[in-house]
Design a binder for these strands. Structure first.
Lengths: 96, 96
DNA sequence: TGAACATATGAGCAAGTATTCATATATTGG
DNA sequence: CCAATATATGAATACTTGCTCATATGTTCA
């Protein structure tokens, strides 16, 4: 068998996490460093609620991590792979 | 602005193409070289029709290319980036 | 303490997607 | 030319997903 079912499922989940314009813009914003939910919402021009929902998914996939500071929560990319996937994908679409 | 809307949309399309287990298994099969539709269907354990539908999308995204030989059509990965994204993603899920 | 603020969450809906089934198109050998 | 074979496609359907709206939880400071 070519690729184990379980691996292909997990891989699909990973790429699914990157398969939405809003989430990519969130990730893009986080490439520069951590940012709280409100700032992210402004940055990607989305409601706080929508951003929070998306962050939940990204957190669950361990693509971002959260750091709580008072009543704010700062998010950051959790993993080097994310940034590399993002970059590689961007190369493909930009001069592909 | 963090990432241009158009870029994030195109990037999302790219990752969407990789966001499905069946398509990933097709791509995985093609890593070894070209293969016709029937062989692919066997390999990924999917109906010929389903494979054909998926190939259509992958073709449209220029992730695979088709070569017609008689009544068969052989598919191959169209781009080095695809294989690299696949590999990088796999590293992430396998020992992440 | 309580009002204001930051974030999270659940329900519900509109839009998108992967598959199946039926059928169409194209190619080959007899 | 006809039957068999390989692939493609359209419609229908079940499932998923991203957003909004309303509300909940948690935190600070006056």
């Amino acid at each position: 068998m070519t690729l184990k079912k379980k691996s292909s499922d997990r891989l699909a989940d990973l790429f699914s996490a990157l398969s939405d314009s809003s989430r990519l813009r969130i990730i893009s914003a986080l490439l520069k460093g951590e940012m709280n939910v409100g700032e992210l919402a402004e940055n990607v021009e989305l409601s706080h609620s929508a951003v929070s929902h998306q962050l939940r998914g990204l957190r669950h996939m361990r693509l971002v991590r959260a750091r709580k500071a008072g009543r704010e929560v700062f998010y950051a990319l959790d993993d080097d792979h994310v940034a590399r996937l993002f970059q590689l994908g961007l190369e493909h679409v930009e001069h592909g």
